[in-house]
Simulated scan of single mutants.
Amino acid sequence: MKRLFSILAITCLMAIGTVNANATTAFASATATVTSVTQAEEAASEDLSFHQELKKRFIEGGPGFMGIVLLCLILGLAIAIERIIFLNLSTTNTKKLTQNVEDALNSGGIEAAKEVCRNTKGPVASIFYQGLDRADEDIDAAEKAVVAYGGVQMGQLEKNVSWISLFIALAPMLGFMGTVIGMIQAFDKIEAAGDMQPSLVAGGIKVALLTTVFGLIVAIILQIFYNYIIAKIDSIVNDMEDASITLMDLLVRHKK
């Protein structure tokens, strides 16, 4: 009988040990699952894309001033992209054009050189054409034509660029105005409540800071495009001036 009780006791202990082991394994598995789910949720929150975060902050800033600031960005970028495309199309290989015009002058005269200019795009080719078109008169007439038409081409290059500078100045000013209005609203809430509670002013201050941030972001983006456009215009204008001097020298040699 004692032996039977001993066997039963050993069997019970083994069963209890197995259950405890299974429970420990299940608990560890559940803990790992919960941990992985928590980590996945944290990763999902951390992986919030820049676009989603920007959209969230934009909505929190309010549709009033944020919409106007966004409009400044859209219009400024539209003008900047149009100017960049136009300036890139206006860029000419001045050395190659000059060589082609010189070869045409030596081989076929003024008309052949004018044909080369007609088949070449850009302000430099247009200036060459105007100078060659007055070459039959005298050098002074050709030079005046080149200078006059050069001013016209500069106006075409700088067209609408002033609007970009306007949006660069306007965007942060609108942001600062939103900041001031947000602070005024926050102090109005304090005055109405008769108590200085952080929850009363937090919303207004947050909106105020968001409008300022977005205004500065818009100004920074447009400023980068504006500086590139100005540098591109200066480069083309320098090519035009050098080409004008070269053209006068070619015409002088051709008349001799």
Rank of each mutant, 00 (worst) to 15 (best):
V124L: 09
Y129M: 04
S29P: 02
I229Q: 04
A243E: 04
K55Q: 02
V37M: 12
E82P: 00
I16F: 03
G175N: 04
V237L: 13
K206Q: 04
A15W: 10
G151N: 15
K144E: 08
G122F: 03
E53L: 14
G215N: 05
Q52S: 10
K2C: 10
S6E: 11
K159W: 14
C72N: 10
N119T: 13
I230H: 09
R253A: 11
I110R: 01
I164G: 08
L251C: 07
T31F: 02
L210W: 02
G122W: 05
I168D: 10
M66L: 09
L247N: 02
G151P: 00
S49E: 13
K256W: 00
M196G: 00
D242V: 13
D133F: 02
C117M: 00
P198A: 00
I181Y: 07
V252T: 14
F214S: 04
A15S: 14
A192V: 04
K206H: 04
Q99M: 05
L222Q: 14
R253Q: 10
I81S: 07
N88H: 15
E143C: 08
G64H: 12
K55G: 14
A30C: 08
A219L: 03
E46W: 07
Q156N: 13
L170V: 07
I181C: 00
L200K: 05
K232G: 06
T33C: 05
L250S: 02
I184Q: 09
D138C: 09
R57C: 01
E46D: 11
E42H: 07
S107D: 08
P63T: 01
E158C: 15
G108D: 14
A112R: 07
D138S: 11
F176K: 11
L200W: 01
R134M: 08
D188L: 03
T33G: 02
F58S: 12
V116Q: 00
E158N: 15
P172Y: 05
E115M: 12
A15K: 03
A231L: 05
G109T: 07
L174K: 12
E60M: 08
H254N: 13
N22R: 15
F225V: 06
V69G: 03
S45M: 06
I205E: 01
A26N: 15
T246N: 10
Y129Q: 11
M183L: 14
I221T: 12
E158M: 15
N93E: 15
S90A: 13
G178C: 12
G203E: 00
E137D: 13
A26P: 08
N22I: 15
N22D: 15
E42T: 13
S235G: 02
D138H: 10
K256N: 12
S45C: 00
A231E: 11
I168T: 08
G194F: 00
S235A: 13
I220H: 12
M240G: 05
I74K: 01
K2H: 15
F50I: 12
A171R: 07
V101S: 08
K121Q: 11
I229C: 08
D136Q: 11
D188A: 04
A142V: 03
A135C: 09
